[in-house]
Design a protein around this nucleic acid. Structure first.
Lengths: 194, 194
DNA sequence: TATTTTCGCTAACAACTGTTAGTAAACAAT
DNA sequence: ATTGTTTACTAACAGTTGTTAGCGAAAATA
């Protein structure tokens, strides 16, 4: 059994699906349209996926994995809350900018997941956000950040970060690191006690 | 001809459509489902709208109007760029928080508009963003804001502001004005020269 | 080489999609 | 009272949706 080839076709489908879902939105892309782009018939998908939704699930949970894995490597390196936050932002931006299509699906089309997968997804997202919340709380407790509402601050940070997939251009004037640096500056200077 | 009643039914449809589109996404709501909630048959919509898309169009362009009208009243009152920006943010947040359903449709479902309406919509959005861009540029030129990339700054501001519809709760601990105040503080302190 | 598994195809399904035609009741205007 | 208009209905359309069944060729395993 050539596991390689199976994985390759499955990955190819995921890649094309990401691209099409991003372009038109999950609900607006039919299996037949997807099939055309892959170069197979719609029915052949079911040798690789159980359903259309399971493609969406794959994309969303892969991204969740990427976010977690990338963040994990970072949070143990630094000690100071503002430095940790800076690194965490950098990690987050790196994941988004190296998967813009998947990011768009992750941020927009997760809502088309049905239960119980939907709850699973939201739980993951909550956990991830909580890591940031903890960093911020620590910064406030240690007097490095100004005492603002945590939830509010986390929401605002994520909204700035998560919008990057929309406008990031690999050929544009900002590298992912520069974007992270600018966002960190904008956000951290707004939070820091002065 | 009782124009009143016509307008009322049309408004009722728009209101329910906003709510359902927000809940499930435009493409996931069928005319029959919408009809059930209004209490009519799907075919009866066509006495009030030409198409499903024209309901979406109505919602999106109404919101655009609200944003423009609200902003216009503000920008002539103040003179200093940071004060103008503060007022503009307040105006923007006020529009979002008093139309959360419509905002969700405005920010998420506009992409399902088809040409030429889509281009019309994007042009409006561009115009609106440009007003903010001008304010920021003036602030930078006058040395009130730090010299950062304008486009980048505008994108970041809007991403924080436009996410508010997602989490704003009329019964929550923040009033729209408090949200605007906090966002202004976070953003402006990040931008201001120190 | 023989056998099993993988992966593609065609054909078809039942349900659902937005929308139109035709019609009748309710309503407003004359 | 008689128009004309608005608004709802039923029935149906043509097309699309995700998905399954059944089949054959190719590929991997033995």
């Amino acid at each position: 059994m050539s596991k390689d080839k199976t994985i390759k076709r499955k990955d190819q489908i995921t890649l094309i699906a990401q691209n099409k879902f991003r372009e038109k939105g999950y609900r607006a892309v039919s299996m037949r349209e997807l099939a055309d782009h892959v170069g197979i018939e719609a029915a052949s998908f079911y040798n690789h996926f159980n359903s259309k939704e399971s493609i969406l699930k794959e994309i969303c949970f892969r991204m969740a994995d990427e976010f977690f894995n990338s963040l994990e490597k970072v949070t143990h390196d630094e000690k100071l809350p503002d430095k940790i936050l800076e690194k965490a932002i950098q990690s987050h931006i790196k994941v988004i900018t190296s998967n813009t299509d998947a990011s768009a699906v992750f941020f927009l089309d997760w809502r088309y997941l049905s239960e119980p997968v939907l709850s699973e997804f939201l739980e993951l997202r909550r956990k991830y956000e909580n890591i940031f919340r903890k960093i911020i709380k620590e910064g406030m407790d240690k007097g490095i950040f100004e005492k603002l509402d945590e939830t509010f601050t986390v929401l605002t940070i994520f909204s700035s970060l998560n919008w990057v997939y929309e406008w990031y251009d690999p050929k544009g004037k900002f590298t992912p690191d520069q974007i992270a640096e600018n966002l960190s500056k904008l956000i951290l200077d707004g939070m820091r006690k002065q």
